[in-house]
Nucleic acid binder design. Structure first.
Lengths: 336, 336
DNA sequence: CTCCTTGATTAGAGCGCTCTAAGCTTGTAG
DNA sequence: CTACAAGCTTAGAGCGCTCTAATCAAGGAG
């Protein structure tokens, strides 16, 4: 438990502490002989530099703060994995926090991250007020994922929800569907953009957009379908759910009503979570390039850290459609 | 970007740095007047103590290292959430890493965690050699989740896989099933215990255990069922999958063979991930108390940190069965 | 043989904080 | 008026490191 310090290594190698420091940072201008001696001593003692002490002394940080509102959501877990990969390859470390989608808890989490004086902070779909984000941005670079912002001090990375929804509509229209409904995500992150994209795409095809209020859960999806079927007759022949969970719930409800997917009703999800790719579900869905989003978020941070950029950057990533087995041609049976 | 220091606060409040330090740690024996002045000054400057500097000076750490091999696995994401909750309520922070199930990467990740001189480290189902774990345990308390160990310096938290499998067998036997197969998890974490529990429970009922080699993925589950159906005639009437993903794959394959679940074949999963609770799947499964596991892991660490305990602790948590809609009485049709 | 130059090494200050021990006020008792 | 707790406050060393500037050794040029 008694961890060796640089001083210990120096003593054992018969050199000064400063020289050990140089070796640890692989600085040039260290003779091969001394370098070897230091490396050997360090190995024998099982020494590795104390990151926090280094950070203090060098006035630099290799820590990235990450706040995620819900790790259970596979989308965020994927982004965190991506951030970790980027961080590891650049010698950074992640300090991670959850905010539970509650502004107060998120605020505390954010403050906790900042007390590490991180090189930067990534907020995944935060719900804290803009003022809190602005305050954070005064302390270090901040990038928002799955949340937009007008603050000139923060960067953002989002998928183009409008384009994603349009992609889905396009696919369904091409399959011959004309009565298409959207089960929206209410106030969830990105829901507004998807709704907007859906409406626009429908209108551009001269179709009447049907939107049912829902949420990003499977039970909400079921409920929305109940409502949809009782309200609209003839019923829609295709559905764009707010996300994959919602889509799975919708499928359950449809099947309970004796409607087959995709024969009677086509269903498209959103997010392409691991759920969608399960063969048992095999959901046609809109994929957000999570790995790329993570990479861009990390790079944006690094650019700010290095002072290479001061204007904000707004990444709007183009989603893609993954066609699986829940969508098919409009059979026409249900057409009036 | 210029972060205020304790000195700045002290100057503004007209007191010494030491006094500010006392207030920040809300030590007693500080007059109300000074305390208020310090708090006010800190607020005005937007000051919060520098955790790393504090850690260095106090020779204590409020950082917990967490290594998770795969965040995409909902089980681990849940445990991390639990750890975060425990950590937050005790004033600790998580530094998180992934090892990608590769010993070399895990080793690097572990070293990276240790360089923060954390108060303790939690390893979620690590695959690094015991020697690496032992080395880590010499630096700080280590607790293993979903991995056993004989090292007296590390604590472990596992679910009782034998009991879990037995629970499932018991349930199926009570439903009248006698030909029950287990699609095992191969070399995955916990798979051996589940397999052992399955065999034991079957034998204790005088039944012949059927075990098919598989993996913890849905495609492996499908493949295992193909194999099972081609190999065993009469076919089993019930299945215990290695985990939920595997179970979902198995269900797909069964349905493709025209077998209904649970009418023709009952299926039990393992883990009770969010997947299982989707109404569309509604999988009977064995639940591991993840929140409790996280809590116990955290507490074990804290006990070691505080020096309250030096002997290792081995938590073996009792899983519970969550009965949903993929299990039902043996219809007897397929009985010989 | 002396003066520079160049590359290798080290002394020492300091990062932002904590913590021990010492110093300063009061109030109260003698 | 002195003595002495008891309660507040602060000086200053030091945590483990980095970094600047100074030192030193060893050639090469004059």
């Amino acid at each position: 438990m008694g961890k060796p310090t640089m001083e210990d290594v120096a003593a054992r190698a018969g050199v000064s502490r400063a020289l050990v420091s140089l070796v640890m940072r692989n600085a040039p201008n260290v003779s091969a002989r001394r370098r070897a001696a230091v490396v050997k001593a360090a190995e024998e003692l099982g020494y590795s530099p104390h990151v926090m002490a280094r950070s203090l002394a060098s006035r630099t940080s290799t820590v990235l703060g990450v706040m995620v509102n819900d790790l259970r959501n596979a989308f965020f877990a994927d982004v965190v994995e991506g951030l970790d990969a980027a961080a590891q390859s650049a010698g950074f470390d992640l300090i991670l926090n959850t905010g539970g989608r509650m502004p107060s808890r998120e605020g505390a989490a954010l403050r906790s991250l900042l007390s590490f004086r991180p090189a930067g902070v990534v907020l995944l779909s935060p719900v804290v007020p803009a003022a809190a984000i602005e305050a954070a941005a005064r302390q270090c670079p901040v990038v928002l994922v799955s949340r937009t912002s007008r603050l000139s001090t923060v960067d953002t990375v989002n998928d183009d929800g409008e384009a994603g929804a349009a992609l889905a509509v396009e696919h369904l229209v091409q399959l011959g569907h004309r009565r298409i409904a959207h089960l929206d995500g209410g106030g969830a992150a990105g829901a507004a953009a998807r709704r907007r994209g859906f409406r626009q795409a429908m209108r551009s095809h001269g179709l009447e957009p049907i939107v049912v209020r829902s949420e990003h859960t499977d039970t909400a999806g079921e409920k929305a379908v109940q409502e949809l079927l009782s309200l609209y007759s003839p019923r829609p022949t295709a559905l764009l759910a707010g996300n994959d969970f919602n889509a799975v719930g919708a499928i359950s409800a449809l099947e309970e009503h004796g409607l087959r997917v995709p024969d009677d009703v086509s269903v498209v999800g959103y997010d392409n979570t691991s759920l969608a790719s399960l063969r048992h579900i095999s959901l046609t869905t809109v994929d957000q390039p999570r790995a790329e989003m993570a990479r861009l978020a990390f790079d944006a941070l690094l650019e700010r850290v290095r002072g290479e950029r001061t204007e904000p950057v707004r990444h709007l990533l183009h989603p893609s459609l993954v066609v699986r087995e829940t969508t098919g041609p409009n059979s026409g049976e249900a057409q009036r």
